[in-house]
């Protein structure tokens, strides 16, 4: 019977402490995860003129950042969008692709608003040597096409 009183006392003592600790941790995570980078980056190792692409991307108010790479006959662009523009992701991708194709009719243009592609593109640009780039770009292009 002593055990009962002991457990009661424990219950009263511990009441609510777990949830308080937990909510603190969650709060900290939310606050700390608020930062992320942005900007417009272009990586050009072909003979094309990048000015047109820069113009198209920088003038679009719906974009928060864009990463573009010219490689051989590929033009690959990954963009991140403003929160509410994200609902029109597919439409914006299409529009941008059309605009870029107008500027570079001879290139194979791919535009993606997928954050995975954006992440990979950033990594790709940071790569020092250009040896594997072609392969990686092909891989990214197939990833974009993947449905499930």
């Amino acid at each position: 019977m002593n055990k009962v009183t002991y457990e009661k006392a424990y219950c009263i003592k511990m009441e609510g402490t777990h949830i308080r600790k937990l909510s603190l941790v969650i709060f900290a995570v939310i606050i700390l995860s608020g930062c992320s980078g942005s900007g417009f980056r272009i990586d050009n190792n072909s003979s094309e003129n990048q000015a047109k692409a820069e113009e198209v991307l920088k003038n679009d108010k719906r974009l928060t950042s864009a990463v573009t790479t010219f490689h051989e006959n590929n033009l690959l662009t990954a963009v991140t969008l403003k929160t509410f523009s994200r609902f029109k992701k597919v439409k914006i991708e299409k529009e941008l692709k059309e605009k870029l194709e107008n500027g570079y009719p001879e290139l194979d243009v791919t535009v993606s608003a997928d954050s995975k592609i954006w992440m990979e593109m950033n990594k790709l640009i940071d790569l020092k040597d250009n040896k594997d780039k072609g392969k990686k770009i092909e891989k990214l292009k197939s990833l974009i096409k993947e449905e499930t």
Binding site: D114, S115, K116, I117, I144, E146, E147, T148
Partner: peptide, 14 residues
């Protein structure tokens, strides 16, 4: 899933 595997935003949902 997007960072450590080859999932895009769309395919990572599954």
């Amino acid at each position: 899933y997007m960072t450590y595997f080859d999932f895009t935003e769309r395919t990572a949902s599954n």
